[in-house]
Design a binder for these strands. Sequence first.
RNA 1: UCCUCGGUAGCUCAAUCGGCAGAGCGGGUGGCUGUUAACCACUAGGUUGUAGGUUCGAGUCCUACCCGAGGAGCCA
Length: 430
Amino acid sequence: MKWVYVEDIASFKDQEVEIRGWLYNKRSSGKIRFLLVRDGTGLIQGTLFDPEANKSLFDKFDELTQESSLLVRGTVREDKRAPGGYELSISDIEILQIAEEYPITPKEHGISFLMEHRHLWLRSQKQNAVLQIRVEVIRAIRDFFDGRRFRLMDTPILTPSACEGTTTLFETEYFDQKAYLSQSGQLYNEATAMAFGKVYCFGPTFRAEKSKTRKHLIEFWMVEPEVAFATLEDIIDLSQDLILFILERVLERNKNDLDVLERDTLPLETIQKPFPRVTYEDLLPKLQEKGSKIEWGMDLSAPEESILPEIFDSPVCITHFPAAIKAFYMQPDEKRPDTVLGVDVMASEGYGELIGGGQRIHDPKLLEQRIKEHNLPREDYKWYLDLRRYGSVPHSGFGLGVERVLSWICKIQHIRETIPFPRLLYKIYP
RNA sequence: UCCUCGGUAGCUCAAUCGGCAGAGCGGGUGGCUGUUAACCACUAGGUUGUAGGUUCGAGUCCUACCCGAGGAGCCA
């Protein structure tokens, strides 16, 4: 008998198939039995009738516990009463293992209990839906850049220096010296961009910040494109195209998952290019009007992020931040040298920063001066300064946080559910 | 790191003024021919986070500690 996956079940209507999976739930009503089987790609209901004729099947059904592993064989039938529209008239059940009493019942649980059982929680429907969307978001990102002929150039995870020196890094041994886990591939991206024109890196990044918020992970995935000869304008355009590409893909391919999450997709469907655009300076009075205490020179923080959806009902590009609150390598604006050619793309619905990026300093003297101003060890940046000595060109790039995008698209409360095994402040189990 | 709230059955929670520790789910047993987190009946299940203290008596009050959550700060 043919082994098939639940996600393909519609193409096997009226045929005998075998499903291999786990018991999600079961119900019985006198002489009729229902069982819900999950196989990782979906849920399907199986039915059993006539206990006299099918005694051994009924006995097996009665024995089954939640999450027992089993093979179910039967005929696929279309039935509106079944969840998903198709069900299996069971002809045979083969039990692989009767599961011990499963800790995650179909009723509600507290978050610390669920996090403690993350390895099992992944089997639940909503967690499955979020992570199915994650699969598609990552695929969309790769398709987007590969389709535009960006070269995937992976950057190292073990790095020799504190790169930006500002944030806390995870330190580790590297034979007889120290190494740090990467918090961004950007500086290396700038090198590969000078070698390959347009590049991107896509991998995990690590930040040892003691942040305890619903928007931060200690370990998260970031995609970072870098384009030689590109200006701030080019990169703003690219970032909008990327976000729209991801949105269209998920809306097209993950309808069921978004349904499971009860996500109202209208606010996502109506997003169009170009996104509203505002400079930091022009945004300040709008924020202050809504009660923010922000002053020129301060970074946007939690209160400001929550005010944004009152002003914009779309993602928004904020540009020209004060140089003092941004990274050392950011290109100053010619007309306003106290501001930089940087952009933050903020999500709609209050989900905060999706993208941060901008134009990089290409003038060797200015870059050297900035490194000095930021008290960074010049030794560590020798190779980086080389990029400005041998054919320096204007160039730009950005970083997009995968989990931030997922929180927003799935409209979930906490970023910890957007990655299979979240690493959180002081929490590394399981 | 700071502020706030919490820790009682496997899970989610209740317990009035300090006075018999209880319900739903899950487990077990029985019933029900289209269930949708099914339903109905019965049943087993407890070192109330830890250590001290006050009291005739502490889940409840006090002290310290441990753990967790929400928020703030931190944060390309």
